[in-house]
């Protein structure tokens, strides 16, 4: 059970993961739950698989940088608020879900039960994405004039944070 908790809490304590999950949620909400609902399950699944991948294939380079790039991408797509083909959404969610999962999985030791850790990771990711998508969908359906702007501004903040952190990280060496 401890390992489940570890997997649950680990992504929630790092901005680069929480913000990316939230951006994925907003993006799904913008596209509408009717059409994009499947991603709410696919993305956390990719994250859990990525964690397992860290056990199988340790030491891949540039994972932290890739995760920051995903912040820029998901944030910018939310800010643009243009509908994307589902194949593109699916590809982005799978690719970056894996790298986010990988970063979390790298923090485990050989004693950690990967099954429990990945399950916790799945649960946390699912909750953030599902609540993000539900909140965005609910708010956008209210038809309040400034809500769509607010969601887009949130996306631009997330993209700006990713851009900034990537730059600072490149200066100081990532992983700081």
């Amino acid at each position: 059970m401890n390992h489940f908790n570890a997997g649950f809490v680990h992504p929630l304590t790092a901005f680069e993961h929480v913000l990316a999950f939230a951006a994925v949620g907003l993006l799904i909400g913008q596209h509408g739950l009717q059409k994009a609902q499947f991603l709410i399950l696919i993305f956390p699944l990719a994250v859990a698989l990525g964690a397992a991948g860290a056990r199988a294939l340790p030491g891949l380079p540039l994972v932290a940088a890739t995760n920051l790039v995903s912040l820029i991408l998901f944030g910018a797509l939310t800010a643009l608020a243009k509908p994307l083909p589902h194949a593109a959404l699916l590809a982005f969610c799978c690719a970056f879900g894996l790298t986010h999962g990988y970063a979390n999985g790298s923090a485990t030791t050989a004693q950690t039960s990967m099954l429990a850790f990945a399950a916790g990771l799945f649960a946390a990711t699912f909750l953030v994405v599902a609540y993000g998508a539900a909140a965005a969908q609910y708010l956008l359906q209210r038809k309040i004039s400034w809500i769509d702007i607010a969601v887009r501004v949130a996306g631009s903040w997330i993209a700006a944070i990713g851009l900034m952190a990537l730059a600072i990280g490149m200066r100081g060496g990532l992983g700081r």
Binding site: A76, I149, S156, L166, A167, I168, M170, R171
Partner: peptide, 21 residues
């Protein structure tokens, strides 16, 4: 009203990159 607050953080982050580097 949405172009300015959406664009500003992104451009500012770009400036931040120049400063940070």
């Amino acid at each position: 009203i949405w172009v300015l607050p959406v664009t500003f953080p992104l451009v500012m982050a770009f400036g931040g990159i120049l400063g940070g580097l």
